[in-house]
Amino acid sequence: MFRRLLLVWLLLAGFASAHQIAEISMSVALDGDQVTAIADADAAYMLPEFRGDEDQEAKDLAWLREQGPEGWQKIARECETYWRDCLHLKADGQELPWTLHVPELEKETPGFMEKGDPEELPMLAVQIEARMPVGTTKLGVSWKEPFGVNLIVTTGKGDAAQTRPLFNEEQVVAERPATHAEMKPSETHLRDWIRLGFTHILPEGVDHILFVLGLFLLVPKWKPLLQQTIAFTIAHSLSLAAAALGWVHVSSTVVEILVAASIAWVGIENFWAKELGKGRLILVGIFGIVHGLGFAGWLVGKLPTGQPEKLPSALLGFNLGVELGQIALLAMAFAAFAWWGEKRFIWVKRIGSALVGLAGLILIIQRTTGASIVPFR
C-alpha cells in the first residue's frame, strides 16, 4: 500500500513540476558476476538543451524519426554523458566500472522508424553492463540527477522482485545470490561441471574463442596446439582453484584488461612468430593464469566453497569441460581452414591475426575507459 501511494505521489509531483519528465524506470539483474541494467529513457531528455527549460514541450516519436543518423549519434553520445554523470554502481562499496550502449541506435534502420504511433513518447532502452569483482556480494546503485528526476529501480525477478524510487543522492543495494537455483553445488554432479565448462567456451566465451583462434592461426597443427591448450588449461586450473579458495584476490577490472591484452598480443605476435617455441609456450601458461582469474569472477558463485570435499570434483569437471570446449573449437577451425594449403592459408593467418589483434585492442580500450565501441560481452 505504501509503495503504491509513493508512486502516485511521484506521478503527481511530476505533473506539478516544470521538468520535461518526472522519473526514469530501470531494471537491474544480477546473474553470477554479470550486472545488466536496462533503463527506459526519453530520447529528447538525453539532450542537454531539453533539460531544465520550464517552457520546453515534450517531444514525440515523430521528432525522433526526424533526427536522422547524425541526430541519433548525438543522442547516443549525450546519453552516455548523462548516465555517467547521474548513475554510480558500487560493489561492496567500491566504485564499479560499467559500459553503456543503446541497441536501437546501433542499428542501420532503428525499429522505431516503422513501429509505434508518431505521437508516442520517444522512449529508448539504455543497456548498462558491469561485472562484479570476485568475492563481492552487494551491488549499490546510487543516483544524482541535476533536475530532480527520480530513478525507479526494480531488482530481482518474479515474486522476489522489488521496486524502489531513488530520489536525488539516494542509493539502493541489491544482494547477489551465492548460487543459482538451477545449479546448487549440493545437487551438481561431475557431468554438470563438465557441461558448464564446455558451454563457457562454446558458445559463451568470446574472449576465450578469440584467444584459441589466435593460437590456431600461428601453427595449425594438432600437436603444438594441444601442447598450448594443455599448458593453458593447467595454468588457469591453478589460478581458478586459488581464487575459489580465497587465496588470491585481484581486481576484476585489472583481470579483464589483462585478458584483453593477451588476445591482442597473440594476434599481433602471429605476424613475426614463425613457429611454436618455448617462449610462446611459457607465455600461454602466463595468459592461462590470467584467464583463470577471469573465470573465477563468473564461477565463484557456483563453486561449493562451503563444501570443501566437493571442490576438487567441481574444479576437475569444469576444467575438463573447458579443455573439451577448446578441442571442439580447434576441430571446427581445422575443418574450415586446414585443407586450404600452406600458400593460401598464409592469407587466412594474416587477416585472422589482424582481426584477433584488433578485437583485443578494442577490448582493452573498452575495459580501460568504459566506452562502448563494439558490444562484446
Rank of each mutant, 00 (worst) to 15 (best):
V8Y: 11
F15R: 13
A16L: 15
A16G: 12
S25W: 03
M26P: 00
L30F: 07
Q34E: 07
I38C: 02
I38R: 09
D40H: 04
Y45M: 05
M46P: 00
F50I: 00
A58S: 09
R65G: 09
G68Q: 09
G71I: 08
W72Y: 11
W72V: 00
I75P: 08
A76S: 14
T81Y: 09
Y82L: 12
H88Y: 11
L96D: 06
L100N: 10
V102F: 05
E104Y: 06
E106Y: 04
T109M: 10
E114T: 14
E119H: 13
E120I: 08
L121W: 07
Q127V: 15
E129I: 13
R131K: 04
R131G: 04
P133N: 02
S142P: 00
S142M: 09
W143H: 08
K144R: 12
G148V: 00
Q162G: 08
R164T: 15
P165T: 00
P165K: 05
L166N: 11
L166V: 13
E169P: 00
V172I: 15
A174H: 15
E175A: 08
M183L: 12
H208M: 04
L210A: 15
L210P: 05
V212S: 02
G214M: 05
V219N: 12
V219A: 09
V219G: 05
H236I: 08
L240S: 01
L240H: 05
L240R: 02
A241Q: 06
A243F: 13
L245E: 08
W247R: 04
H249R: 04
H249M: 04
S252W: 01
S252Q: 06
V254E: 03
S262Q: 09
A264N: 11
G267H: 09
E269M: 11
K278W: 14
G292V: 08
G297V: 00
W298G: 02
K302E: 04
P308L: 14
N319P: 10
A328H: 04
L330I: 13
F334S: 01
F334Q: 01
A338K: 10
W347K: 10
K349C: 04
I351V: 15
G352P: 07
G357W: 05
A359D: 08
G360T: 02
L361N: 07
L361W: 06
I365E: 10
G370A: 03
S372Q: 13
